[in-house]
Design a protein around this nucleic acid. Sequence first.
DNA 1: TAAGCGAACTTGTACAAACAAGCCAGACCA
DNA 2: TGGTCTGGCTTGTTTGTACAAGTTCGCTTA
Lengths: 247, 247
Amino acid sequence: MTVARYEQIASELRDEIVRGDYPIGAQLPSETELASRYAVARGTIRQAVAVLAAEGLVGSRQGARRIVLGSERSQSFAELHSFAQWARSMGYRASGSVLSSRRRACTAAEAERLSLTPGEEILTVLRLRRLDGEPVLVERTVYAGWIAPAVEKLDPECESVTQELYESVGLVFAYGEHLIDAVAAGSDDARLLGVRRGSPLLRQRRTTTSQEGRPVEWSDDRYRAGSVTFSIRNSTSANPLVRRAGD
Amino acid sequence: MTVARYEQIASELRDEIVRGDYPIGAQLPSETELASRYAVARGTIRQAVAVLAAEGLVGSRQGARRIVLGSERSQSFAELHSFAQWARSMGYRASGSVLSSRRRACTAAEAERLSLTPGEEILTVLRLRRLDGEPVLVERTVYAGWIAPAVEKLDPECESVTQELYESVGLVFAYGEHLIDAVAAGSDDARLLGVRRGSPLLRQRRTTTSQEGRPVEWSDDRYRAGSVTFSIRNSTSANPLVRRAGD
DNA sequence: TAAGCGAACTTGTACAAACAAGCCAGACCA
DNA sequence: TGGTCTGGCTTGTTTGTACAAGTTCGCTTA
């Protein structure tokens, strides 16, 4: 019994929703009814449905039954942060290769983003990622100096950096911030991705932080248009996505 | 006492974080300490910090003190869904105009997205939105037939559709799903936004749902590159953003 | 017929208590 | 010196209770 009871209940309910027992627009049973069905306290049921609400699967208003909003399973944090793990879960074959890897002193902007002092050493890595052999993503990553040795030891053709770093030094990626916009392909991007210069790319700039809240990496990832879409569900009560003015 | 106690506490803590009393990386006081400071039960404190965790401001691991991850205030659901309300909160002047508005029978794909039966009548609206006079967004929206009359009554120059619909018929936008990717500007897009054909646009396709879970609109919004960025924070415990394979 | 009222139902908020599980630092031992 | 271990601290899980607040729907009444 390693997982919490409310997690089990959440996943049973999620399965029922995904399976179509509760189609979109349908009402969920009341908390009291679920509580007696699963023989737990109402608070436990509330925690379970809170999980589903955070995933955007169900919505709720005080006084009215909870309703089903969607039926697609959302992925885990790892699948968002790790290209390889995401690809695998979608049934794609992911590959990739390091095109360059260099140490240098960090700029003021990089210091800011990684909570370093300006001039501290960082490691920059340029990677090209492929889905089923097709290049879809150019990754320009800056790693904080303290993790650089572990990154340099990785196999250049290493599939999942996230997983390798966990296995080699026990580093866990726990938190992330993402900025998403569109840019035109530069000449390097265009050559690597096999598209024309100036064609649209989906850009995801992200910082990743360890469990302890220590910034680990800052990355500029550019996806070939059409290869990847970001998806999000939100509501008046849970609204993680934010629109910002550009640069 | 219209707002919940835990909301008040969450907003006091958020203010302290934003103000810098707890800088990024710092530890928050323990739940027990906060409980006695605010003279509430520990459960209430847990609800308050859960709010901050959902906003991505703080992270937590069992056994260790909670840590501050960020200090930027995230916006409300309304500010994501309503271009006008977002612009206003950012200090921009938003304007917009309806370029065309037509009723027709819906296609199978539209019926699917809006939970209609194929052939049912819908309303399509093309809007151009401006920030401080500059065109930044082309909006192609499909409204379900039942809301069409209220939409047609709106002023073509109406600033905030969301707000007007609330005031005229009491419609509340409560839930949304968003698909974000990059596309090349078509000739219409290019002309309206004043960019070259083929230049990159940030595309946000979204469906919006009323409080009751009834789909209201489906929209294809295209932002001029550089004008808008989407931002999101996530963690192992809260992961609403999802990456998908393209089309 | 239509508006209004109210009772039953449902979710939201808050408190209190107990135990489980993970983290951390200082003490202890080799 | 370096590793291990233990005890206290902190967050996570679960139960139970009580009341507040909003929704729904049928019944009454004008």
